[in-house]
Computed example of a mutant assay.
Amino acid sequence: MTAILETRGLTKVFGGVVAVKDVSFQLHKGELLALIGPNGAGKSTCFNMLMGQLPVTSGDVYLEGERITGLTPRQIWRKGVGRTFQITATYASMTVIENVQMALMSHHGEILRFLPFATRMHRDEALALLDMVGMANQAERHSAVLAYGDLKRMELAIALAHTPKLLLMDEPTAGMAPKERVALMQLTADIVRDRGVSVLFTEHDMDVVFAHSHRIMVLNRGELIAEGNAEQIRNNPMVQDVYLGGGTVFASEGAQ
Rank of each mutant, 00 (worst) to 15 (best):
Met1Asp: 08
Ile4Ala: 12
Thr7Ala: 10
Arg8Ser: 07
Arg8Val: 06
Arg8Asp: 09
Gly9Trp: 05
Lys12Thr: 08
Phe14Tyr: 15
Phe14Glu: 08
Gly15Thr: 13
Val17Cys: 06
Val17Asn: 11
Val17Asp: 07
Val17Trp: 08
Val20Pro: 07
Asp22Val: 05
Val23Arg: 02
Phe25Arg: 03
Leu27Gly: 08
Lys29Cys: 09
Leu32Gly: 00
Gly37Asp: 05
Pro38Lys: 02
Pro38Cys: 08
Gly40Pro: 12
Ala41Trp: 06
Gly42Phe: 10
Gly42Pro: 12
Lys43Ile: 01
Thr45His: 06
Cys46Lys: 00
Cys46Asp: 03
Asn48Ala: 11
Gln53Asp: 15
Gln53Arg: 11
Gln53Leu: 14
Leu54Tyr: 15
Leu54Ala: 13
Thr57Tyr: 07
Thr57Met: 09
Ser58Leu: 03
Gly59Arg: 03
Asp60His: 11
Leu63His: 12
Leu63Val: 09
Thr72Glu: 12
Thr72Ser: 15
Pro73Met: 10
Pro73Phe: 12
Gln75Ile: 00
Gln75Phe: 01
Ile76Leu: 04
Trp77Tyr: 13
Arg78Asp: 11
Gly80Thr: 10
Gly80Ala: 04
Arg83Glu: 04
Gln86Cys: 13
Thr88Gly: 11
Met102Lys: 01
Leu104Met: 04
Met105Asn: 02
Met105His: 04
Ser106Asp: 10
Ser106Val: 02
Ser106Asn: 05
Ser106Gln: 07
His107Met: 03
His108Met: 01
His108Ser: 05
Gly109Leu: 00
Glu110Asn: 02
Ile111Tyr: 03
Phe114Trp: 04
Leu115Pro: 01
Thr119Lys: 10
Arg120Ser: 04
Arg120Ala: 04
Met121Thr: 00
His122Ala: 00
Arg123Met: 06
Ala126Arg: 05
Ala126Thr: 11
Leu127Gln: 12
Leu130Pro: 08
Asn137Ser: 14
Glu140Ser: 14
Val145Ser: 08
Val145Glu: 06
Leu146Pro: 11
Tyr148Leu: 06
Tyr148Ile: 02
Gly149Ser: 08
Lys152Tyr: 09
Arg153Trp: 14
Glu155Asn: 10
Ala159Ile: 01
Leu160Glu: 12
Thr163Asn: 14
Thr163Ser: 15
Pro164Tyr: 09
Leu168Glu: 10
Leu168His: 06
Glu171Asp: 03
Pro172Ser: 00
Ala177Gly: 14
Ala177Ser: 15
Pro178Phe: 13
Glu180Tyr: 15
Arg181Asp: 15
Arg181Val: 15
Arg181Tyr: 13
Ala183Pro: 14
Ala183Leu: 15
Leu184Pro: 08
Gln186Ile: 01
Thr188Pro: 11
Thr188Glu: 14
Val192Phe: 13
Val192Pro: 10
Val192Asn: 04
Val197Lys: 02
Leu200Val: 13
Asp207Ala: 13
Asp207Cys: 03
Asp207Leu: 07
Val208Cys: 00
Val209Ala: 00
Val209Met: 00
Arg215Glu: 02
Ile216Thr: 02
Leu219Pro: 13
Leu219Asp: 13
Gly222Ser: 03
Ala226Met: 03
Asn229Leu: 05
Glu231Asn: 08
Gln232Ile: 05
Arg234Tyr: 04
Met238Pro: 02
Val249Asn: 09
Ala251Pro: 14
